[in-house]
C-alpha cells in the first residue's frame, strides 16, 4: 500500500538559477545541497510547511540519463512552457502574487476567480509553470 510521496522532480535548465528562484524568490527550504563532482550537485528543496516532501531540482544536461538529442528536446520543451508542475498552495493568492511580482517572478495569469476557486499561474526560471491557489478555508472577504 502506497502511503505518501517523498521525492519528486522538477527538471530545470540551470541548477544555480533554480536554487535562486526556488529558495530566494519562492521561499522554499534547502533539504540537501551535496556536491557530486564538477558542475553537479544533489539539490533538493521543500515547501516551507511540507518538510517531508523533497523536490529534486533536476538539471537537464547531457548525461547517462539524457543523451544529447533527449536533453536538447527536453530543454526546448521546458523553455516553451509545456510542463505544468502542479499546484502550489498559499494562504492568500493576492498577497503572494503581489510579493512574487515584486521579486521578479513572471506570471502568465493574474489572480482570477474561476469556478474552482481563485488561481494565478506563474513560471519558474526555466519555463515550468505552476498554479497558485489558496488554502481551502481562506476567505478573501476577510481582507
Amino acid at each position: 500500500m502506497i502511503t505518501k510521496m517523498t521525492i519528486t522532480n522538477i527538471h530545470v535548465i540551470d541548477q544555480d538559477s533554480a536554487f535562486d528562484f526556488y529558495v530566494n524568490k519562492l521561499g522554499f527550504r534547502v533539504v540537501d545541497d551535496i556536491p557530486m563532482g564538477p558542475d553537479t550537485r544533489w539539490l533538493t528543496v521543500s515547501p516551507p510547511e511540507q518538510p517531508d516532501l523533497q523536490i529534486v531540482l533536476f538539471p537537464v544536461k547531457v548525461s547517462k540519463m539524457f543523451p544529447q538529442e533527449t536533453a536538447e528536446t527536453l530543454i526546448a520543451l521546458i523553455r516553451k512552457g509545456v510542463f505544468g508542475c502542479g499546484v502550489l498552495t498559499c494562504r492568500d493568492v493576492f498577497a503572494t502574487y503581489e510579493e512574487l511580482k515584486l521579486k521578479g517572478v513572471e506570471f502568465i495569469k493574474a489572480p482570477t476567480k474561476e469556478f474552482y476557486g481563485t488561481e494565478a499561474l506563474f513560471k519558474d526560471d526555466s519555463g515550468n509553470y505552476f498554479s497558485l491557489q489558496p488554502i481551502s478555508n481562506f476567505d478573501e472577504n476577510d481582507i
Binding site: 493576492f94 502574487y97 493574474a110
Partner: peptide, 9 residues
Amino acid sequence: MSSNEYPKV
C-alpha cells in the same frame, strides 16, 4: 483580470 483590477489591491 489584471493586477490593478482585483478588489482591494
